[in-house]
Amino acid sequence: MSRRKKGKQYFITALLWAVTLLFAAPFYILIIYAFKPREATMLKSPLAFPDQLYLDNFSEAIEKSKFFSAFKNSLISTTVGVILLVLICSMAAYVIIRKGSSFFYAAWQYVFLAAIMLPFQTVMFPLYKNLVKLGILNTLFAYILVSVGFQMGFAIFLYCGFIKTVPIELEEAARIDGCGVFSSFWKIVFPLLKPVTMTVVVLSALGIWNDYQIALVVIMKDSVRTLPVAQQSFIGQQISYLNLASAACLLSIIPMFLLYLFLQKFIVKGIVAGAVKG
């Protein structure tokens, strides 16, 4: 490598590290705010490192924001929602691809695809009124249903792209050996879908865990609130207690951080399989 080229490479490396540091900076601010006592967040040097680690913020934030109640609601709706999405979307995508020659199933593929573009606003109000009529407004059940309904389009799109690449011969062999439609799907096809299932898990978990708009409309009661809505109102109340708000924010990131840490490689793989090829 020539000297000039080497110099250029150093320059690119330094530039990329600088950009990445800029992207990480907001986390630094969140973390130092969460560990400072209240007085220190009002001083003239907001970027300074905290003098001592002030852990009382966390216990106070947990107590005041009713953190565990919101955390529990988020955890239940995300877990149930993701499992439901994986089960029903993989099944739907399977029949859409395998029975693609039938007009009925092909039409549904386009319906689901079109739904990805649909703004929530278009159905928001009639949906809200229906939930009131059914008596399930302000329940986690309704929140899960609506979230699943709105995540479905993208999940089916990802699954369809992947199932196209799964060879049909395996199922035909199983069929000849006397395997029914159900068992050939669950025993043979579903395990092969693992990479794209992982992507659906990560993306829809992030989507439901961090969703604000649907939760705002479907859940208005304190006791069923999920984290983002609870946090928004907590931040509004604690506008002069930035340390508490930061601590609450930091705590709520942890589960998604762990999920990301463990499933990181699947995100990349699955998106390659689904989005780009599709």
Binding site: F27, Q232, I267
Partner: peptide, 10 residues
């Protein structure tokens, strides 16, 4: 990729 794990509220 890390920022995407935060919610919009955060």
């Amino acid at each position: 990729f890390l920022p995407i794990i935060t919610s919009l509220v955060i």
